[in-house]
Structures are given as C-alpha cells and as structure tokens.
Design a protein around this nucleic acid. Structure first.
Lengths: 128, 128
DNA sequence: ATTTGTTTACGAAACTATTCGTAGATAAAC
DNA sequence: GTTTATCTACGAATAGTTTCGTAAACAAAT
C-alpha cells in the first residue's frame, strides 16, 4: 500500500531486473551486468541507483564502503502494476485479449500450456 | 516493418486509444474525450498530435481548415509491441507467467476463459 | 463590416529522465 | 608511505515529455 504509486522508469527496470535475478547487489555488479547488453557508464548506474533509493524503490546497506542495494518492490508487485497499466492503456481492459495475444505470438511449451489450462480450471471452479 | 521502433509515450497512447475506438478524429473531438478523464488544454492536445504526426505515428488530412488525424499504427501492432517489451522487461520473457498473472488477478468471465481454453487446444494441436 | 469563436503554428517554460565529469574519501598494491 | 584503483557524492549538461500562452488565419454570428 506504501509503494502502490511507484512506477519504475525504463532504466530503473533494467536495474531492478538484475536485483530480482541475483539478489542484493553492488553498483559494480549491476553496471557490469548492464554492460553485457549496452554501454553505460559506472557513475550513470550509480546515480540512477541513488535516485531509486531516494524514491524508495531501493534500500541500501552502507556499513562497508561498497554499498549493497536491495529492491523494496518485488517482481510480483511490479508485474501486477505494469500489467494493470498495459491492460488499461492498450488492451482496453480486456485480460482475455491480452492473454490471447501473449499466447498466440510467443511460443510456450506444452507443459506451460497445461499449467495455464489447469489454472483456468481452478478459476472456473471458483467462480459461480 | 517501418514503424517497428515506434514506442508511443503515455500521453500519446491516450490519444491513440481515442482514434482506435472512434476512428479518425479532429483535435477538438479527441481533446473533449480526454477531458472526460482529466483536464488538459486544447493546445496541449494539438501540440502532441502535431508531434505524433512528425514522428510518423499519425497522419492528417489538411484539406479543410479543421484537420483530421488518423493513426498509422494499429492497435494490434501496439499491443504486440508493448506486450513484447513488458514480457522482456518485467516477466523475464515468460509468457506463461504473464498469462497467469493476468488471469489470476483480473476477473474474466466464464466465456472468456472458455475462449482461452479453446485457443490453448489449438496451440497444442499445432505444436508437436 | 465588426465582433466573436475556432483553428493551426510556433515557441518556450516546466518537468522528468538519462548521462557523465570531477572531486574527495577510502582501500589495495607496491 | 606513495601510487593506483575503486567507491560515493555532487552538480550539471543533455535529451525527452508535457504543458500552455500568444499570434495569425479563418469562419461564423451579429
């Protein structure tokens, strides 16, 4: 309920992704990771992470000289929030359309499809 | 293949949504629509639509004094593109996770769920 | 014809996001 | 202990987005 309004920017999401995948990290580690995809200066990443800390997206442990940053928002929260936004802004609020696009255009394994089917069964059971 | 790189901003999406829903429109019409949700000046909307035209997101018919704007990108294209981005940036590329979140947290009718199940059947049939 | 209203064009202000250079502190290497 | 490398802090430049005021052209109303 606290951070319900937080919407990470593009660059901030890239940083969050690293933390979500590898856990709390240093600026160095994250910057190295980012540089596997595109060139970005160390102080750029540092600055971004400092800003994110001010915004309440990250927290940091400053005990040692090299600070260690953690995410204050879970991947789940971010997923939920951004999905909501996309749903409203581009899919006219229809989850069905979104799901159909997602399934239709991105290969999913048979196992994955089975899992989704199972979920649908449960949902159908739960609703009247 | 032309506009594959176009990523509409927040405000631009709001304008596109109106055009997608009602078809080619004037600035006046779109601005009135937008003002049903939030206050926004006429010239603000005008300016945005002019910029969108420069970017190649909209085209316009200037025969009469009151210009008529059309979208150069379809809702489908926008959906596909933004879904891709969301998938990569927040869902680690897993369409399954995205679908599960979408279905789990947004009420869908039984009919909708059936349609999705049908789609999955087709997909399973098509794949080996 | 004059006033009033509507439209486009233009420019610039306000705000946000992104980038990085420089300086100073601390640690590591020698 | 001096040099070298690494780190944070800070400020500022750049770029992108959003906002709107003003002016000029034109149309409608009177």
């Amino acid at each position: 309920m606290e951070n319900s309004k937080l919407k990470p920017t593009e660059s901030e999401l890239e940083i969050l992704q690293v933390i979500w995948e590898f856990g709390s990290s240093t600026v160095r580690f994250i910057n190295d990771r980012l540089n596997q995809n595109k060139k970005v200066g160390y102080t750029t990443t540092l600055k971004l992470m400092q800003i994110m800390t001010e915004k309440g997206i990250l927290s940091r442990n400053t005990e040692s000289r090299t600070h260690i940053y953690s995410s204050l928002i879970t991947q789940d929260e971010a997923q939920q929030q951004m999905l909501d936004k996309l749903l409203k802004s581009v899919f006219g609020g229809s989850a069905k359309n979104l799901v159909i696009q997602a399934l239709g255009n991105h290969k999913s394994t048979k196992t994955e499809l089975e899992e989704i089917k199972k979920l649908i069964q449960e949902l159908e059971g739960g609703e009247k």
